[in-house]
Amino acid sequence: MTPILTCEHLTKTYGVFRALDDVSFTIEPGKIVGLLGENGAGKSTLLKILAGMLTKTSGRAQIDGNEPGVLTKSYVSYLPDKSYLNDWMKLSDLFTLFSGFFADFDIQKAKEMAKNLGLSEKTRLKAMSKGMQEKVHLILTMSRHAKLYLLDEPIGGVDPAARDYILDTILTNFSEDASILISTHMIADVEQILDEAIFLKQGKLILHAPVDELRETHHQSVDALFREVYRS
């Protein structure tokens, strides 16, 4: 099976600082992969390069055979870690906006998810609580039928109920042809839904393995293992 994502010696430097250092890995379709690491480990940088928000310094990244660019953006769905939409926009505006630009945007799905949250389409983003805004951002990202989903800290800073909703939504939208790459530093909360884990530390990839395999080998949760690996 052709991998959905391939990184070969991917490096990003800012002057002397190496945000990403010779990162190589492959992800097959139909996997939920956790990109785990402390703040500043390079997780966001990696996702931004894959999403086409940053240009790499050296190395190669290929998503379904193409380098990040205009073409990949049509089948990669990216959820940034910051709010990036105009908050005066109504939910209906956002749905129309996304359908206009993304051919793979499923507006019915988005509307249904919003309805399940009890949101009226006339509500403006700024009238919603922060937690609700984050859910809306997630709905927009997951309503696309993309081949690769890149979620940057989707559960950071949300209450447990919202976190459960987010993880549920990710599982519901799982497809065998697509893969999801979730970056987070809150490993314990997310490890239950992961297939594989990638550990990043100071820009370097220090581990990439299936999650159950790690548990079997190390007799620890991924969270505990990570802390151990990180300390060394």
């Binding site: 999403a51 928000m53 205009v70 073409l71 953006k73 990036y84 939409l85 630009f101």
Partner: peptide
């Protein structure tokens, strides 16, 4: 941050 929106468009 708004740049994320424009640059994620194909």
């Amino acid at each position: 941050a708004h740049g994320y929106f424009l640059f994620m468009l194909p």
